[in-house]
């Protein structure tokens, strides 16, 4: 297992280099120099000051050296300062130490993504098992139709419809944000309730596509497991159908799902831009949207790099879990 772990960690190195290199090259896609936004808006800037800025960002050096310097800075979590009027360091915007832990942008996004992943698992696995054990039954057909519609529904549209129904028309759920205005005056339990009410729609929307996809995978993975010889053996032994399905088939069918869950992280993270913007949730997605609209390059780059690295760590964790639960993988 340790050898497997070390191998996986080493396999990560080229991916880290590649991910950072691509992020770095994208900065250089922008026409002109990244400092232009800062200098253009300031009429008082002298050529000397401009040169000093360029030197600060290392723009006078060859591109590979620049990449090296940039890598060194991001290893220390220094993503530069935001171009916006507050010109705070990018890392402070993402991970504001002054705010309580759950209110920091990165924690908000991670919380919503974790909750939606739990929701995906909680719905998709039972649906998948149901469909797989009764293939081509009425229930299976209905769930297949739902899966197709789920795949085709744009999440931002679903958000709009749900907001119109539950927040505008029925007034059951708050329309946006993470907390009500009177949040500070509420008791601890009411605070939890208030936050949960705000989270219902965003979590559901971000899980929606995943539920469709995952139940489809679960169905085919389960059908494949049921067709194995050991299931025939288990049935021949006279085990109850319950034990056959839930003990023998399900455990094996769950294995590939670990990888699929890992692979679904980038989609969830990318989706957070959409639903955080619509629901006005102060997370990474909203920050990146604001940064993109105001051409705040350091913030955009910081978020792109951080989210890519987090995704990679998610995949890595999935790989390690897979190795833990399935000894066959370790040998390969």
């Amino acid at each position: 297992m340790i050898i497997y772990l070390i191998k996986r960690l080493f396999a990560m190195v080229p991916v880290i280099i590649g991910v950072t290199l691509i992020s770095f090259l994208i900065i250089h896609l922008a026409p002109g120099k990244p400092t232009d936004v800062m200098t253009e808006l300031n009429p008082k800037i002298t050529p000397e000051a401009r040169a000093r800025l360029e030197k600060y960002y290392g723009l006078d050096k060859p591109i590979l050296v620049q990449y090296g310097l940039w890598l060194k800075r991001i290893a220390l979590l220094d993503f530069g300062n935001s171009f916006s009027t507050d010109s705070r360091p990018v890392i402070d915007k993402i991970w504001d130490k002054k705010l309580p832990f759950p209110d920091r942008r990165l924690s908000v996004t991670i919380l919503i993504n974790l909750l939606s992943m739990l929701l995906i698992i909680a719905i998709a696995i039972p649906v998948g098992i149901y469909s797989a054990t009764r293939p081509y039954s009425l229930g299976d057909r209905i769930s297949t139709v739902c899966v197709f519609i789920g795949f085709a529904t744009p999440t931002f549209w679903l958000s709009l419809l749900l907001m119109m129904l539950f927040s505008v028309k029925l007034d059951w759920l708050p329309i946006s944000g993470l907390k009500s205005l009177n949040y500070a005056t509420l008791g601890p339990w009411q605070q939890v309730l208030d936050k949960s009410m705000h989270l219902v729609l965003p979590v559901f929307v971000s899980a929606f596509g995943g539920i469709a996809g995952m139940s489809r995978y679960m169905r085919s993975s389960m059908i494949e497991a049921i067709n194995n010889d050991y299931i025939t053996t288990a049935r021949a032994k006279g085990l109850t159908e319950r034990a056959v399905i839930y003990k023998h088939a399900l455990r094996n069918a769950l294995l590939p799902l670990v990888t699929i869950l890992g692979l679904s992280i980038p989609g969830l993270v990318g989706g957070s831009v959409i639903f955080e913007t619509i629901f006005g949730i102060p997370g990474m997605g909203q920050l990146s949207y604001q940064a993109i609209m105001t051409r705040d390059y350091p913030v955009v780059m910081g978020i792109l790099t951080i989210s890519a690295l987090l995704t990679m760590m998610g995949n890595m964790t999935a790989d390690i879990c897979y190795g833990l639960v399935d000894p066959r993988i370790r040998v390969k």
């Binding site: 990146s288 989210s307 990679m312």
Partner: peptide, 21 residues
């Protein structure tokens, strides 16, 4: 490896960032 790398970057973020640039 290049495929692995591209799959690691949340593509919607990447698309947004490139379009911003």
């Amino acid at each position: 490896r290049l495929v692995d790398i591209m799959l690691c970057i949340p593509s919607f973020f990447l698309i947004l960032a490139v379009i911003a640039f």
